[in-house]
Structure formats: C-alpha cells, structure tokens
Nucleic acid binder design. Structure first.
Lengths: 337, 337
DNA sequence: CTGAAAGCGCTAACAC
DNA sequence: GTGTTAGCGCTTTCAG
C-alpha cells in the first residue's frame, strides 16, 4: 500500500504538519528540531514516501500540468513542437497532457473542456478554425493559454506564429530570381487564416515581379484525402499549363505527396520545375535537395509558448486583469538566401 | 470564478449530495423527484458547471489518465504509437500524459516516479535498458503497466513487441533470394535485447543459406551521434568489402542516414546493393521504393497496450494477485513476400 | 425523497 | 518547536 503523510506522522508520533513542513524543506524556517527533521526524512526515505500530487494540486490549486491541444501528434511538425514544449516545460517542472483534435472543432471543444476539468494550469493550442467559441470562454474565464501555429487576429490572446506572408513572399521571390515565370501555388485548408496569408505572399511576390496571377496555376487540395486529391490537382495543372516551371507548396505534406507524384511521373525537379515549400520534413533534404524551404522555428515556438504560460501563471494573482497578451510573429528559417 | 457542487447546492437550496446524484445521472435510481432533477440540471447547464476532476480523482482513486513513457515524442515511430494509444485510450475515456525519457535511465526513473505521484492509473512504457530497478518497484507495488517495443524476458510483465528475430530473418532471406551474398548488418543500441534478436535473425538467415557471417560486414553505429558515425561505418565497409551487395538496417533512422549517404555518394541502390530495413519512415516509399521493409504493427501495439491496461484496471479489486500477464509477440507487416 | 457527515491526502493559518 | 484544525471539491454511507 502507498502511504500518506498521516501514516508517517502516526508512525513517528508527530503531527502531519510537522512531516509536511520537513518534507517541503521548510524545516529550518519553521524551526523544527534537527532531530525531528532527521527522523522524518530518514523514515520517509526508508518507506519511499511519494506525495500524492492529486491531493496537493487540489489543495494548492495548481497541478503543474499543461495541456497541449494539436491537430495530431502523429504529424511530424506537431510531434516536434510537442517535444520542444515538453523540454521547456520540464525546466519549470511542468508535465504535459496532450490531445489530438484531428482538426475537428467538436473534438477540440470537448478536449479543452476536459483539460480544464482536469485542472491543467494552462493550455497550448494549435486551433482549428471554428474553435472560436471555446476560446471566447477561455478568455472570459481568464484561463491561461497561448495559441501556436494559427491565430485569430480579432481575439486578444497570446499567440506565436510564423511570418506566413513574408515567408511565402521570400520563397516565391527566390523562384522568380531563378527565372521561373509560371509558378503554381498548391494549397489546402484554405479556411485557415495562415493559409490565406501564404497565398497573399505568393501573389505579392508575383505582382512585384510583374508576373500575372494565373488561375490555372492555383491548386487547392482537399485536406481529408490529400494523397489522392493532389494527383487530380497536379494532373490538372500540367494539362492546362504544360510549361509550368515552378511549384510553391503551402505546407509540407503537400510537397511530400507532390514529390511522390514527380518521382512516379518522371518530372525533372531540378531543370524543368523549381520547387519551394513552407515547412519541412526530414526527408526533403534527400528527396529534393534543391527545393527552397522555410522552416518553422520549432524550438522558439515551443520555448516561448511555455515561457509565456509560466509567466502568466506566476503572476496569476497580482495582475490578472492587467496582463497584456504576447503576440509573436517569428521570422522564418530559410535554407537559401 | 469556477463554481462547485456546493455552490449549486446552496443556490438551489438542496444538498451537495442531491446535486451530485443528479449530475451523475443517478437521479432516477436514487429516486430524486423529477422537479428537483430538472432544477439541478437546468441550473448546472446555465452556469456551465464543470466538475473538478482532481477532486473526483482524489475521492475515487482513479484519474482516468494514463502515462506514456517513450524515448522521444519527436521520433516518428513513437509519435505514431502515441497517436494510436491516444485514439484507443479515448474510447475508454482516458487521456494521456506523455514524457520523453531521452533513452536516459535516470530521467526514465524520475518520470515514472513523477507519473505515479500524479496518480496516473497505469503506464505504457518503452523502456531503456537500465530501467529495471524502477520496473521491479512497479511490479512489487502491482502498479498496472505494459511495456512496448522492448521488454525484459526475465521479468513477469505485460509486454507487446514485434517478432524481431523472425522479421529479421525474413528480410535477410529475401535479400539472399535476390542473389545477394555479401550483406552488411548496420545496427545500433546493441545493449537492447531487441537489437540482439535482430542480429540473431540476420545470422540465422545467412547460415541457413550457407553464407558466412563476415565480421567486416558488421557495422555498429553510436546512437548519440548516428548522423556522423554512420558515415564512418559505411566508409569502413565499402573500404574493406568493396563488393558488398546488400544492407540490412536494424532500424529506421539508420536506413534514413544511409540513404542520405548513398545519394550523396552516388551508390546505386537498385543494382549495386539491395536494401532491407526493420521499421519504416514515411519517406522510404519514395526514397527507396525497392527496399524491403518490415513495418511495426503500430495500430495493434497501441490498441493492445491500452486494452491490457484497461482490463487490468477494471479488474483491479477482485484479481489483483491472480492477474496473469499478457506477453504478446506480434507478427511483422511486410512490403514483400 | 433528501441531507449530514466522513473521508480522499495535502497545506497553512493559528494556536499552544 | 509542534499540534489542531479547517478546507480544497467530490463521492457515498447512513440516517432521517
């Protein structure tokens, strides 16, 4: 059986309080005699006492657990994010409970409510489009949270995102500098604001170079069945614009599937078409060493997210209402210049 | 402010008990008048009551949280495992707290103790070599847990692993059937039992085919710096056995780095050398479509792990001592025959 | 039909 | 120096 403070107290004929103080390292501060302290410590070690953190959380009102809500832990990007967050959180003695929303707003809402019920101290959320309602509640309740990867500009929340428009602009401009003139944009999940920003960057790059935005070079892939749908999209583009000479992928998995397509169909991805992608996967370096890539600053995102949360938690009492939200737009990491 | 049962009770002039019963859906069973029930439900909905799960856990002795201990959530394999586990756990209303051990036994011990302190109901662990001590304690305490991916045959625990020896044997035999005669084994983490089993399978395949086990064809890569160390290993093999005609990689990231090496050095991986790997990464299909691959049955592993745990938890009282441990050796999934 | 009260394991204000 | 006590929010036995 696992034993409690009370058991120790009883066994040593002291009070729970004494044991609690000593084990909390406040023995000296509370002027508990050295002999008692030793006795308690020795006994606790002997029976391998482990405090019940549930009880402590209930008492203290803080669980030292953070909740992580992401589309899917199986996605390489979010898995890496999770890792960084975990590492940073550990520095502050927080552990992580994660839940995959599957990009389903219903699920996301349920998850957020559940995590709140489990009394996680704060949330890190990569939101899907329609989670607005639940976020409104969080804001109203002053529940600490920070959005990552996606955000809602009209909401006063902490968020950390990539400079999507600027990154897109850099990538497409780079392709143009290589002499590419008919650059296709392959995108998906266009209900997401960040995806619109990426498209905006693409358009700005084209128009700054005096190139037309050709509708036939715009490919939108259905997220839910992207492996097959991208074939349709690419087939379409090659059919309508046979001399397409560049592809800009708005996100990693689109590039991945396109590469599969290019390999299968023998498309020469160094001479015939130039490639660019926002986001990366570890295999791109081999599969398409010439592809221009903007990487998300994963480490930064994770670290900042945790730090923002922790600092809000530490100042929870004094400045609850005065907290000004951090809105971070991080610069891209590029594999080119 | 978040309100409690007591608040509701007070507001409605009923007792906590009544509210608790009604909200637990036991209103009818406890014969609480319909009018009271409605009143309570309506009010709870109106104020958006969310029970404090910490308190409930403390009372009930079960937190509906499982702990997941893996080497790293950033690794594609473990991220996928985590996803399957999460999906299965959700069916039983469990959520997941995960911690990466970084393959460090010290960290792993700390993590396990911490998760126990947080009173997770059970643990799913992909153990590192030296975590034996902590596992002994778990066994002694009858704490529910299941090992995945790795195991200790001398310990009476639940575990779910791949048929490592058999899978290796199949892969190498397949290469031999292609006429490969000088097949290198590239491995790492050789302190792990599962790695030894993979080597055994390799050896058995060779000897069954009457081929010699050539020491110069054995490459052991240092895990901690595998990206660079594998270059040394491969350089060595090509230097000593220039006509090496096959590579068997004991795990995915070795194959990944080797592919990088092959691409960089222009090694023809269809004609000159045949490839085989135990474990996969999503990019292999493109990078090396001819590589023979054994995939881990990820879904099965995740589902079984959760089911074993849940069933132990459900039978916690009656048969604590009689529980016989599940020892599962799952067959491989192959991309060849 | 409903409520009082104990208890889960811990902390902390307040005695003595 | 140390102990008493109340309370965190919930469930559940037992009494009305």
């Amino acid at each position: 059986m696992r034993l409690s403070l009370k058991d120790i107290a009883k066994a040593l004929n002291v009070s729970k309080t004494t044991v609690s103080w000593v084990l909390a390292g406040q023995g000296d501060k509370r002027k508990i005699s050295l002999s008692t302290q030793e006795k308690v410590l020795a006994y606790a070690r002997k029976v391998n006492y482990q405090p019940n953190l549930l009880a402590r959380s209930l008492t203290n009102g803080s669980s030292f657990t953070l909740g992580l809500v992401i589309p899917s832990i199986g996605d390489e990007f979010y898995a890496h994010i999770a890792r960084e967050i975990e590492m940073e959180a550990e520095k502050y003695n927080y552990s992580l409970t994660f839940c995959s929303s599957e990009a389903d707003p219903e699920r996301e809402s349920k998850i957020i409510r559940m995590l709140k019920s489990k009394r996680v101290d704060g949330l890190i959320i990569a939101p899907t489009k329609h989670s607005r309602k639940e976020l409104d509640i969080l804001i109203e309740e002053k529940y600490p949270f920070v959005l990552i990867d996606r955000y809602f500009p009209e909401l006063d929340t902490n968020y950390i995102i990539l400079d999507n428009e600027g990154s897109s602009h850099r990538l497409v401009t780079r392709l143009i500098r290589d002499g590419r003139k008919k650059i296709a944009l392959i995108t998906s999940d266009t209900h997401l604001l960040v995806m619109n920003l990426r498209r905006d960057g693409y358009r700005r790059a084209l128009s700054e170079a005096g190139l037309p935005v050709i509708p036939a070079l715009y490919g939108e892939v259905k997220r839910s069945e992207y492996e097959t749908d991208i074939v349709r999209v690419l087939d379409g583009i090659f059919a309508e614009v046979p001399d397409v000479d560049g592809f800009y992928f708005a996100t990693h998995y689109l590039a991945m599937e396109a590469l599969r397509y290019f390999y299968r169909n023998g498309v020469d991805i160094t001479a015939k078409v130039g490639l660019a992608c926002l986001h990366t996967m570890s295999s791109f370096e081999i599969l398409a060493p010439r592809m221009y890539i903007v990487e998300q600053p994963i480490r930064d995102i994770g670290q900042q997210a945790v730090q923002i949360l922790v600092s809000e938690l530490e100042n929870a009492d004094d400045s609850k209402k005065m907290q000004t939200k951090k809105k971070l737009v991080l610069p891209a990491i590029m594999n080119f210049s």
